[in-house]
Design a protein around this nucleic acid. Structure first.
Ligand SMILES: [Mn+2]
Ligand SMILES: [Mn+2]
Ligand SMILES: [Mn+2]
Ligand SMILES: [Mn+2]
Lengths: 218, 218
DNA sequence: AATAAAATTTAGGTTTACCTAAAAATTATA
DNA sequence: TATAATTTTTAGGTAAACCTAAATTTTATT
């Protein structure tokens, strides 16, 4: 069955919102896609006819089993391409999302299977998010916010979420990346900033803003 | 300036037809694109407004200088992706065209520069066609039809054109690929077939049909 | 040169994916 | 529980990229 680029984007975004909120609202989806609610309603009817979403007018909606499978395929494509861009072409993790947003729509299944094999079937993308395997299986690891990690315990950074801004510059400056081992020494309630200690470095202070986007295995 | 996927396909096809016929007709372009003449006329007006084609109603048309630059960029993207698919992902040369037809529309310039570098700035794609460099420069080599090569002269295959069918099976059977050294011993006028001799192999007969799609440096 | 044939354009539709503004339904609040 | 606020849908458009059928222009043939 064929899905247009737009359909794929909608399905993927429903998947993402669903994974956080359980059910999805028209407005939430419109917000995430940068579209208007009316456009979402229209697409919803199309996706329903294709049996990709459970949808009753005025009610929140969610993906069907089929919709979920399709979403996982798009997510797989997106994250494999991100991995390729970083590990083969040398992009930095913060530069690859928009490019992968286009590449994820290339339709060849064979291509993705070969890409996966070529990359060594990676389980996580450059942001630390799990890459679904060809059956849609995800390796789940707990991503704990650095802001909520116990004090003085060594942890390893396992995910970084870029929130539009230029956080990556800061992270580069501190030399924090996925795999970095560190511990939180103190938490300053006044502004939410943290004192962290990394291997062979003197303690440093990072803002709560940055800390919120760093996740780790505890 | 932004060009849609459709616009890019039209521009590229005008470029290809132009490179053979000098000027392009509405019908020729419609045929090549699998579209109707009316659609071509419509697009032509759009491309003219964007200063990509020289066009007067009812007359044949051609790319402007700008149109040519854009065409070469799309061709570059197409052929670099084909090269990637064959030399990195292990596809065979006859499988990659349709995939590259989609990938050529991914818009990031930085991506293409990095891809080019990653591949070692190849000058020819897996079909033997030259890959424009980032300034649009092509390495031109003469591609002589095997059917018109002098007898008993050793030549090297430098291009293969797949014409829809399953020619590649035959070529694989004969073990003919780009780089193969061979000579034509005899030409049989009756059906256009050729007797060819390859290094360390006994002479073989190939049909004129196949020979027409094999090109070589003489 | 007149007429026939072929090529091209125009006119008028369709589908997809958007939009705004107004109407309807749901949810929150007084 | 009525009323207000919010959310969602419907109604009615637009733009891109297609299409068919009819009109127009160009080219070829008597
Ligand atoms: Mn996308
Ligand atoms: Mn990612
Ligand atoms: Mn294409
Ligand atoms: Mn090629």
């Amino acid at each position: 069955m064929y899905f247009s680029e737009s359909e794929e984007n909608y399905i993927k975004e429903i998947y993402h919102i669903q994974s956080v909120q359980g059910m999805v609202s028209t407005n939430a989806l419109a917000g995430a896609l940068g579209a208007r609610a009316a456009s979402v309603t229209e697409m919803l009817k199309k996706l329903q006819k294709k049996k990709l979403v459970h949808y009753k007018p005025y009610k929140n909606f969610s993906l069907t089993e089929l919709g979920n499978r399709v979403a996982l395929e798009v997510v797989r494509k997106h994250r494999l391409w991100e991995y390729f861009l970083v590990h083969k072409l040398g992009f930095s993790w913060h530069e690859v999302h928009d490019i992968a947003e286009e590449m994820e729509h290339v339709s060849s299944r064979e291509l993705i299977q070969r890409l996966d094999h070529y990359l060594g079937s990676p389980a996580f993308d450059p942001h630390g998010d799990p890459i679904p395997d060809k059956n849609g299986k995800l390796k789940i690891i707990k991503q704990n916010r650095l802001t909520e990690v116990p004090l003085r315990k060594w942890v390893i950074v396992n995910a970084l979420k870029e929130q539009g801004g230029h956080m990556h510059q800061l992270l580069k400056h501190y030399d924090i990346h996925i795999g970095t081992k560190l511990k939180v020494n103190k938490k300053f309630d006044f502004d939410g900033s943290l004192e962290i200690k990394m291997d062979k470095q003197t303690p440093a202070i990072i803002s709560g803003e940055v800390a919120k986007n760093i996740y780790c295995t505890v």
